[in-house]
């Protein structure tokens, strides 16, 4: 039962107020895309034991989506940040590195 702070409204929301949305920072592939790219977009999901980037919607709250960087093993939350981010912002990466020195970044 996580608590995540919604960056859109500032509420520290109970997991039961949130709806999960899977892996963050996926790039959409539409018509014209290769089979491999489309397969990766639709089905190939990271499932790391460790640092992960996820989509969450503050469904029972302000209704807005946001992204979270957290550790799937310890459930430590490094940051939550706007859904309108194509990649993790530098401040988020810095927060992760501060807690996990030597982290190599997303593979």
């Amino acid at each position: 039962m996580l608590t995540l702070t919604c960056p859109n409204c500032g509420v520290a929301a109970d997991e039961t107020e949130l709806a999960p949305g899977g892996e963050a920072h996926l790039k959409r592939f539409g018509p014209g895309a290769s089979d491999d790219d489309f397969e990766a977009y639709m089905f190939a999901r990271a499932n790391p034991k460790g640092i992960h980037f996820e989509r969450w919607r503050h469904a029972y709250g302000c209704g807005k989506w946001f992204l979270a960087a957290r550790c799937t093993a310890t459930l430590e939350v490094f940051a939550t940040y706007p859904a309108q981010s194509a990649a993790p912002p530098e401040a988020v990466l810095a927060a992760i590195r501060a807690r996990r020195p030597g982290w190599e970044g997303r593979s």
Binding site: C9, V11, T16, E17, A59, Y60, G61, C62, G63
Partner: peptide, 8 residues
Amino acid sequence: RTRLAQIA
């Protein structure tokens, strides 16, 4: 904004 038991 939150939930009241099972509703928004």
